[in-house]
Design a protein around this nucleic acid. Structure first.
Length: 418
RNA sequence: GUGGGUGUAGCUCAGUAGGUAGAGCACCUGGUUGUGGCCCAGGCGGCCGCGCGUUCAAGUCGCGUCAUCCACCCCA
């Protein structure tokens, strides 16, 4: 029989990597709680239509990256490629919007995109998502950025760059798009790199982001989006920038910051790192004021972000295995069953205990205790005539003392805990 | 979807002009140490990704295939 492997781009998480993920999730929950942001858990499978409508029919995600299949009743279902659409669907379906209040939700879980794997990119990956619904105010933009910043700081990441851009609204963006088209089309096609000749048609904003020197030369004088947004958009964004500046949160304007999901507008942002390869963005998000309505809900504005857990995990330092309170060793095979019961008792009292299931030499058991970083080794010796039968060895100092069974908890508390 | 790199013990990798395989770490056992950590000795463990071809003979050459990594694209 040949063994079955996991699918391409689907990875198994082992310790200590899995511990890092758990730690990141815990931090997220505590930080978001301070912002009165509540956790939401939505299905990972939704009707395909939800994503087509939400993300945009002609985006790369919808066009070529979705895990879509027919269920047993021939309905088109899709493994979620992002979280926002599902969260909004849930809010609309259950009428979670309060007319005059702001709702804040976060979700943590797996997302799926059919892409070629590379560093920082898998087919199943995990995101922490925040959605703030109900306020058009620039204060919401700033507060969301604060939330993201607080979370990233909490997990120990400080050397990150916050990039901001203003994408404009449905009123002013088309005009800029036309201006940009006109600018590019007046230039000879051959002056662009091969990729950009294609981008001009598919996604002109991306041309501005091209790294090829020749293209950079051209785009230096290209129209900037900042000069083409309407006065309302400009005011909103300026207020965001002013408040961020006042708060001391450092940001960098990136007029070339483009997001690949259609629903973004107005304030958009990305957090990038130079330490994790080509897929450098660890978090991204922005405002999506028309989206709730587009999905069949009331006309409610929203703003949110997503963090890629795998990319965060590459940046946070791994922490050590938590030490064992005690390893339970036995001097003869007969004591093994007594050891299991004693271990259970001690664990019930809250201690972390490990013990062998097969008998081995005491030397071997102590080696294991040492390897597991046990603070204490409790040695059971039930040999008739020997009393007392329990020995506690401090694995740091090497000291060894007899200890009556009913005083073990006390011993572990006073001696073993740092 | 398009490039390029890599596939030899659980892990990281060596492997010389083609002659059926090695190291370090890990694991197990033993010695020394009051019973662990250091050190020493031994042991377990390899259809050399898979298939076909060239050859008396292939881990080593050729073709194909699969997997994986990195990059493009795109995004978290």
């Amino acid at each position: 029989m040949n063994a079955i492997q996991s699918g391409k781009g689907f990875v198994d998480l082992f310790p200590p990597q899995s511990d890092i993920f758990t730690a990141i999730e815990q931090r997220a929950r505590t930080v978001f709680a301070r912002f009165a942001c509540k956790e939401l858990r939505t299905p990972i499978i939704e009707f395909t239509e939800l994503f087509v409508r939400g993300i945009g029919d002609d985006t790369d995600v919808v066009q070529k990256e979705m895990y879509t299949f027919l269920d047993r009743k021939n309905r088109s279902m899709t493994l979620r490629p992002e979280a926002t659409a599902g969260v909004l669907r849930a809010c609309i379906q259950h009428k979670l919007f309060h007319p005059d209040a702001v709702s804040k939700f976060f979700t943590i879980g797996p997302m799926f995109r059919y892409e070629r794997p590379q560093k920082g990119r898998q087919r199943q990956f995990h995101q922490i998502n925040v959605e703030v619904l109900g306020s058009p105010s620039y204060l919401a933009d700033v507060d969301v950025l604060f939330m993201l910043h607080a979370f990233l700081s909490e997990i120990g990441l400080s050397r990150l760059v916050f990039e901001l851009n203003n994408l404009g609204c449905p009123q002013c963006r088309p005009a800029f798009r036309r201006t940009l088209d006109d600018y590019f089309n007046q230039l000879p096609q051959t002056s662009f790199c091969a990729d950009c000749q294609r981008r001009i048609r598919t996604n002109p904003l991306r041309v501005l982001d091209c790294k090829v020197p020749a293209c950079r030369e051209i785009t230096r004088d290209a129209p900037s989006i900042a000069d083409h947004v309407c006065s309302l958009c400009k005011l909103h964004f300026d207020q965001v920038l002013a408040l961020l500046d006042e708060s001391g949160l450092e940001t960098r304007l990136n007029p070339f910051l483009v997001r690949g999901l259609d629903y973004y507008q107005g304030t958009t942002f990305e957090v990038v790192s130079t330490d994790i390869g080509a897929q450098s963005s660890v978090a991204g998000g922005g405002r999506y004021d028309g989206l709730v309505r587009l999905l069949g809900g009331p006309d409610i504005p929203g703003i949110g972000f997503a963090c890629g857990m795998e990319r965060l995990a590459m940046l946070v330092p791994g922490n050590q295995d938590p030490a064992l309170d005690a390893f339970l060793a036995v001097k003869n095979e007969q004591s093994l069953s007594k050891a299991v019961i004693l271990a259970h008792t001690l664990r019930t009292s809250g201690f972390c205990i490990e013990l062998p299931f097969e008998y081995r030499s005491i030397k071997s058991q102590l080696r294991t205790a040492n390897k597991l970083n046990a603070r204490t080794c409790i040695i059971l010796d039930d040999e008739p005539g020997i009393y007392p039968a329990i020995l506690c060895k401090n694995m740091v100092t090497g000291e060894q003392t007899h200890c009556p069974e009913d005083q073990l908890s006390q011993y572990l508390l006073t001696t073993s805990r740092p």
